[in-house]
Nucleic acid binder design. Structure first.
Lengths: 338, 338
DNA sequence: TTGAAAGCGCTAACAT
DNA sequence: ATGTTAGCGCTTTCAA
């Protein structure tokens, strides 16, 4: 592997000159520069980012820290689409991307700070972390710039990007109300998720606007899992046969709900309307296809990266961004003639 | 950020001793080691992997080079699942993972070698590259160890991992033949994909075993795209109404084929049996659900990483691995009563 | 316009 | 068992 010294030697100049020539400094003779460039190419030289980073104390690297990068994530693709957004934005802005994935086992070995400092990432984007995760405390105490996805906490070095979950949920439930549904239940995620709390608030807000009292037994947790949602939906529908519509806090859980309803012999969407949240790929292919609140996961990643690099470059801008949702009407929600 | 010198100073020893103590060398007094460890912890010290790599000329980093990391990949999740496999294996073996994504625009700026050498990755896993991609030549000429996914080329520094595509395809077509289908067409990918050629070979082999002559007009290319497959299927079925079964070289294309058939008013699977390839998530949720040949993309990534690290560590082992497929029977393929 | 020298944080011979 | 020294490949003062 050719180093800067090889180039210097062959060109008959000092390494300093090579460095300056290749980095586009103006105080170098154009002829010398051309010669050096030629030789560099000849030698197939490319500078060691390692050495450069060491001396410049800048790595131009950001980390995407994912808690639980698991294949199960295939079903909703959340992580993958965020990753695509981060990757694209980082690429545009000239940042390298390293993937840091942890799980509870790994977390006991290495602290958040160690993980980040070792790899010399200048900043981090955090995705898939629960609000009760011990890493979250570390993030707030650490001085490493960080953007949280879907956890609205802000400090000097911490910002966030999230979706307007309350609004989205409210839109979903209002849609069902406008279709004439009176008994609308909700399959929520779990209480350790910020988004679940927000979506619940949206559900409640929609009911309140129509003066429908909030019935606690109409809300169950499906843990964002298809199977759990299926079980919980089955229980719920058995206990409350009057329910004519369901708002699910994720499309994946809606898939579980659809299965539960079908197994009970219900005809969809005639006997039960369902609206999901996320707009995952599956939602367009299920039978019936799923009405849902679309959130832009790619943009979540893209904007997170933008915010992070702003933070890194000391720009004085907002440290948070809230994205809007879009309602997508498909087959699973129809008028109620109860 | 605390450096090794800070620790040394505070402990009243030399940096060498700190280095040795922390790296578990035996020639250091246990009391000294304990003291150093304490102080390191106190100072929240973590060694700079950058500096270490520079001097050791080892980065313990592998790159996953993906051509076209795009959100469209969500639909089949190929890249994501490979990524999960790579990530898990790399984690187990103590390797860092950097994501390198290129597209044709980027490729004109930087050569494969530059991309890899700059980032000081010791080895690379290549995914999503076409057989006519210029990078492929570079890979073969380069001395950077590399494992190709789904391109069976081997050299001193290059190995590959792939699926037994011919076998899988043959199984699919034999399944259809055993169901009594006589006129089986194939929606293939494109000729720049090695897997397409193999799957075609499997299709032909199955026919040959039953002495059914190969009909060239029964094979069309769907470019691995849902929409293209839909169009091509529509044309094909109109031109050859006798076709009673379809083997699609990817599930995604099978989704397109299903749509085409439905739009023509065909009842599935009664009037047309379909078998796909991949076992993507969608295939279990479509109507009818799709019989398919499952390939293990996670394992593809995992095994690629294993092979690569073997290569890096100079182990004398096989440089390739071929994974087997599994047939999954679902609703889309039934007996032919033509 | 160019070069010499110092140093980024670490490891590894080679002393002692 | 510990320290001294050199050096990984680069950038950056400071001089010339």
């Amino acid at each position: 592997m050719a180093t800067i010294r090889d180039v210097a030697k062959k060109a008959g100049v000092s390494v300093t000159t090579v460095s300056r020539a290749l980095n586009g400094y103006s105080d170098v003779n154009e002829k010398t520069r051309e010669k050096i460039k030629m030789i560099a190419q000849e030698l197939n030289y490319s500078p060691s980012l390692l050495a450069r980073s060491l001396v410049m104390k800048k790595t131009k690297t950001i980390g995407l820290l994912v808690s639980g990068l698991r294949i199960e994530g295939s079903k909703d693709n959340f992580t993958f689409e965020v990753l695509c957004g981060v990757n694209d934005c980082a690429g545009e802005l000239g940042y390298e991307l390293v993937l840091i994935s942890t799980d509870s086992k790994k977390q006991q070995e290495k602290t958040y700070n160690q993980l980040c400092k070792e790899r010399k990432v200048e900043g981090v984007i955090l995705q898939g972390i629960k609000t009760d995760d011990p890493y979250l405390d570390e993030v707030l105490k650490s001085d490493i710039p960080c953007i949280l996805i879907d956890i609205p906490i802000e400090s000097d070095s911490v910002g966030y990007v999230t979706t307007n979950n309350k609004d989205g949920a409210q839109t979903a439930v209002e849609h069902l109300l406008n279709l004439g549904h009176k008994h609308i239940a909700m399959i929520n995620g779990h209480s350790q998720a910020f988004v679940s709390r927000e979506r619940l608030a949206g559900y409640q807000a929609a009911l309140m606007k129509k003066n429908i009292p909030f019935n606690e037994s109409y809300v169950v947790n499906g843990a964002f899992l298809e199977d759990t949602a299926e079980r919980e939906t089955a229980k719920l529908l058995k206990a409350h046969p009057e329910i004519s519509a369901l708002f699910c806090a994720s499309d994946l859980m809606a898939m579980g709900a659809i299965r539960a309803a079908k197994k009970m012999g219900k005809t969809l969407p005639k006997e039960l309307s369902i609206v999901g949240f996320d707009n995952i790929i599956l939602s367009a292919y299920s039978t019936p296809s799923l009405s849902t609140i679309a959130q832009d996961r790619y943009k979540l990643g893209f904007e997170a990266t933008k915010l992070l690099t702003n933070l890194l470059e000391g720009k004085e801008v907002e440290k948070n961004k809230v994205l809007q949702t879009t309602f997508i009407k498909r087959e699973s929600s129809i008028e109620n003639h109860g």
